[in-house]
């Protein structure tokens, strides 16, 4: 992950987000009870190159959404720093906000049901000094880019559209303000099978046309493989493996990634091999390597010492003692 300057769009250093595990009210404070924290994202350092699609995979609850939200400034880091083109986020948050967007899994939840498509799509432009005509032009342009006919949709409400059309509207809203970086949280998992590929192709088209940088969160390995340039694998708030898509798909290094691939249904493996053991607690994460209680290869060192990400082959990193020399 050595980054040399200009082609890196986003870099994080020791990014950490803790959530209060339960309400910490006045009484608790008076009683001096220790608050419990969920370590949703724990000391994560990643870097995303301009124009690349980075895919984040991992178990439910491993902190993928939280990491995505941190990157688009919807969540404030507990510690650590995010750099946009080398400048710390805390120094220019409003400039960054204009350049980032997020698209959610369920378009019905992310589009205001009471507004029509025109109002939904133009919303990002309302706070900018743009004439009405210009705004309309850009709404039309954005809808056209995602393959929707303005005259057909502009007066409709989200519930009058099909799932695929709704997700296109969400995309149109995301791209209308000319962002550089878009986080897509499970963009196709609420869609029907035959619609999924339409939306995936659209994402690729848009990226080729406008040179967006994507962070795609998904649990569908086939989607990940299709759309990714770079993959990050998360487990219990930590990045456990990263590499180019072909490296990770061909030769997953971390035992967790290997097991994940075996338990995810695809058209290739008929025999799913479910992971054994309990999912890890994020409040009291296992000591040492967080995966050791479920890892078939765990040995003594894994229970006490936390492995760091090491470069196993060029560009392919894993945080596992199987690969740390000593």
């Amino acid at each position: 992950m050595n980054e040399n300057g200009s082609d890196v769009l986003i870099r994080t250093e020791g990014l950490t987000k803790l959530f209060l595990a339960s309400k910490y009210g006045l009484l608790d404070r008076l009683a001096r009870a220790k608050p419990l924290f969920v370590r949703a994202v724990d000391n994560v350092s990643i870097s995303i190159k301009k124009g690349e699609t980075v895919v984040l995979v991992g178990e439910s609850g491993s902190g993928k959404t939280t990491l995505g939200r941190l990157l688009v400034t919807l969540e404030k880091p507990t510690s650590g720093e995010i750099y946009y083109e080398g400048i710390p986020l805390s120094k220019n948050i409003s400039a960054v906000r204009e350049k980032v967007q997020i698209v959610y899994q369920n378009p019905l939840e992310s589009l205001d049901p009471r507004l029509n498509i025109n109002s939904i799509v133009e919303e990002p432009l309302l706070n900018r000094k743009i004439t009405k005509e210009e705004r309309l032009r850009r709404v039309k342009e954005a809808l056209e880019s995602v393959g929707l006919d303005y005259s057909y949709v502009y007066f409709r409400k989200p519930k009058d559209l099909s799932g695929g059309q709704r997700q296109r509207v969400a995309l149109a809203r995301a791209i209308i303000s000319n962002p550089r970086f878009i986080v897509l949280d499970e963009p196709t998992s609420a869609l029907d099978a035959s619609i999924q590929s339409q939306v995936l192709n659209l994402l690729i088209d848009l990226k080729n046309r406008f040179n967006y940088t994507y962070l795609v969160i998904t649990h569908n390995i086939m989607v990940a493989e299709y759309i990714a340039d770079q993959i990050y694998v998360m487990y219990a708030g930590k990045i456990v493996e990263t590499g180019r898509v072909d490296q990770i798909m061909k030769k997953p290094l971390h035992p967790y990634t290997q097991l994940l691939f075996k338990s995810v249904p695809s058209l290739r493996n008929k025999r799913l091999e479910p992971m054994v053991g309990e999912p890890p607690s994020l409040i009291n994460p296992p000591p040492g390597c967080r995966f050791h209680p479920r890892c078939p290869y765990a040995f003594d060192r894994c229970r006490v010492e936390e492995p760091a990400l090491v470069e196993v082959e060029p560009g392919h990193f894993a945080a596992c003692h199987l690969y740390t020399k000593k």
Partner: peptide, 23 residues
């Protein structure tokens, strides 16, 4: 069409087949 539109490989190796239209 369903099977062909299932993601396979990487986007650099070619676009996905899509079934046009909706159910």
């Amino acid at each position: 069409g369903l099977l062909k539109s299932f993601p396979r490989g990487n986007y650099r190796d070619g676009k996905l087949y899509t079934l046009q239209g909706a159910p």
